[in-house]
Amino acid sequence: MSKGVELSVIASPIQGLNLVAGFSHNNAEVTEDYPESGYLGMRPESAGPESLVNFWASYNFSAGALQGFGLGFGGNAASEFLTLNRDNIGSFALPAYQVFNASISYTGSQYFLTLKLNNLTNQKYYSGWSTVTPQNLRNVALSLNYRF
Rank of each mutant, 00 (worst) to 15 (best):
G16R: 11
S8C: 01
L115C: 06
A47G: 08
P134T: 02
G70A: 03
Y146G: 01
I14V: 13
V30E: 15
T114Y: 00
A57P: 05
Y59V: 14
L120C: 12
V53K: 15
F23G: 07
S24H: 06
N136M: 03
Q123I: 04
N118D: 14
F92W: 01
R138H: 06
S62K: 05
N54R: 15
N85K: 10
Y59K: 15
G90S: 03
N119A: 04
G16I: 14
R43V: 09
L52I: 15
F55K: 07
H25G: 08
Y97N: 02
F100D: 11
V99Q: 14
A28I: 07
F23P: 12
K124T: 14
N27P: 02
I14P: 01
G38S: 05
Q110D: 08
T114F: 00
I104H: 04
V140T: 10
G72R: 04
Q98V: 12
G70P: 05
G48F: 08
L40Y: 13
G108M: 05
S51L: 10
P44M: 08
G74F: 08
S79T: 13
S37P: 03
N18R: 11
I89Q: 00
G38L: 04
N101I: 06
E45F: 07
L52E: 09
N27S: 13
F92G: 00
I104N: 03
N139V: 06
R43T: 12
N27V: 05
S105N: 09
L82M: 08
R43A: 11
L17N: 11
T133R: 02
N18Y: 14
S79W: 03
F92M: 00
R147F: 09
F23V: 13
N101K: 09
Y39E: 12
K3H: 10
G64I: 03
N119H: 12
W129G: 00
Y59G: 13
S37H: 11
A77S: 14
P35A: 14
G108Y: 04
R138P: 09
L84P: 00
I14C: 04
A47E: 14
L113D: 02
P44R: 08
N139M: 02
S130V: 05
L120G: 09
Y59C: 12
G38P: 04
